[in-house]
Write a protein that binds this DNA or RNA. Sequence first.
DNA 1: TACAATTTTCACAAATTACTGAAAATTCAG
DNA 2: CTGAATTTTCAGTAATTTGTGAAAATTGTA
Lengths: 180, 180
Amino acid sequence: MKLTPMMQSLVLHFGEMGSRWGLNRTLGQMYAVIVLTEAPLNADQISEALQISRSNVSMGLKELKSWNLIKLQHIPGDRKEYFSAPSDIWEIARTLVVERRKRELDPTLSTLRDALMEQPSNASDEYTQMRVQQMHDLMEMVTLWTNEMQGMSSEKLSALLKLGEGISKILDVKDKLLSR
Amino acid sequence: MKLTPMMQSLVLHFGEMGSRWGLNRTLGQMYAVIVLTEAPLNADQISEALQISRSNVSMGLKELKSWNLIKLQHIPGDRKEYFSAPSDIWEIARTLVVERRKRELDPTLSTLRDALMEQPSNASDEYTQMRVQQMHDLMEMVTLWTNEMQGMSSEKLSALLKLGEGISKILDVKDKLLSR
DNA sequence: TACAATTTTCACAAATTACTGAAAATTCAG
DNA sequence: CTGAATTTTCAGTAATTTGTGAAAATTGTA
């Protein structure tokens, strides 16, 4: 499979970004080619398109599976496994947010809880615990949000995000409603 | 500077997480010790606390400065430079979000725009552009949001996040108000 | 069940990233 | 200005991460 120049440059870019997104270069490239190609792809096609070894593709697919970012499908009469990304970009975003939360927040939340259970050994530990408490509360709220996001339809999510600068006003309205 | 066991374990944890957060181990540890200690710290103290070389600390501080995560301050009668984190945890969160957006979204947004300007060379490119458009729109909304976040006070931000599961309801209310 | 097709694993190699000590540059009190 | 204190830079090295080919495991069909 040969990539068009447009694809080529997008794939390269997502490779660069991959590492900044908690994936890595190859994973970024692989996911780019899967997301940006309409037809499901098999490992050999990916390997050829990105000029990387078959085994590397296998490991990458394993990782993408663990992120729930790809769907496996079979094509009648073909024994190979084909992969595609969800067609709804919001679903991809939702998944990314949740999976990153799992990896970036959940373990920390648990460590923070442990620290809060400990007996402070001196004044300095007391300050530390105070900060830990603040971080914990913040992260817990973010967690609630991402859970909320999970349950929202793409339409609703899109509407919420479109609100953009309007969110401030909505908040004010809500305050008024409650204070009445 | 010797760390209490509580600090020690928190610092180690944030070191682990550092790499998942787009920083790296040392940066994570450094920021943990700065955030969790009440008094501003100088480079030597950090170097001793984390058992890393003075030069490594210097590079780390440079990076943390570029993230706008630390404040430089001077202590009267002392020539050394001291660093501390904002006392408001929300300010830290806001900064983190914005800086990550700069690094993780902005460059991609610009690449996506470039791709949209190009003339599709075939049907496959047309599909690609369609997906690029979707990604672009989504990322642009996220960008608007983070901008909005920037302007919000910690109190407001906290209130918004506390809304948590309530956000769905608020959205519904808003729809009703508009449709009247 | 047998076996060819396909995928996965894994030890090693390659590439990348992080860390250090020494030296250079900067800062500031006297 | 001078020079001691402090910070920064940087080339080399160490550590970590990523990629490969060969071999093992799995799959599905004839």
